[in-house]
Amino acid sequence: MIPAAFEYTKATTVAEALAALQAGGEDAKVLGGGQSLLPVLRLRLNAPSVLVDCSGIDEISGIREEGGKVVIGAGATHHAVMNNALVKSSVPLLAQATATVADPQIRHRGTCGGSMVHADPRADLPPVALALDAEFQIAGSGGQRTVKAAEFFQGPFETSVGPDEILVSVSFPKYDGWSTHYEKFNRTAQAWSIVGVAAAVRMDGGKIAEARIGLTNVGGTPMRASAIEQALVGASSLADIEAAAARASDGLAPFADDDADEEFRLHLARVLTKRAVAAASGLK
């Protein structure tokens, strides 16, 4: 459809963008790659009065190493993230999950930050951020603040980024030496996840020494499967993984949609957790 009319400004610095948001008031909205916001506008589910285009702000587009962390500018495109050497070596889980997002056209426009702020329960990057304890740098009129992933995602399409704030970057601790796997389950290759599992394991002597698990689309926000993370420690075979993964659905109360009712979603969480951890650990 045709969106309702809106004003458009293009910011070139964070300061400019923040000022434009302030000036725009309640109804102003940040435009990143537009891959989620524009469909929302075209379906007339939302009608912001001002769009502040942040896709051209250099200071939030880069990917760099800083203080032992990999810092990903909110404006870095999916394409840039998945092909970045630093990301591939130190946060391979993010690179792999990003490569499952949509198709090349969308990955060339959509941004890592846009995906995080949009916080679609089906999105593949938020569970990675959650599992890996990423941190979010948010700029507002009062300066910059940092929010942990565990607090960042507050509900479906809801994060701790305020209406007059901008996500500047997401920083990931380095996971050199970990083995990781993102297991995405969808109906067609370019569709959204029905359920996804982000798994990272540190192996020691053929056993899982440490595990981190994030789940996609089994609730309103990405979920951290802490119970399984504990249960996986010491696992040395596929059977051990299977036993632990059986608990992947503990405590979840997922919603139902056309692709999966509650029963099937919980079942998928278990099966896919088993597969993700098996693939990450290489255990048979």
Partner: peptide, 16 residues
């Protein structure tokens, strides 16, 4: 209609 959009009325593409 329960799935009258192309994100819910799934059409396969070459990789499928």
């Amino acid at each position: 209609p329960l799935n009258a959009t192309l994100s819910t009325y799934l059409i396969p593409a070459a990789p499928d």
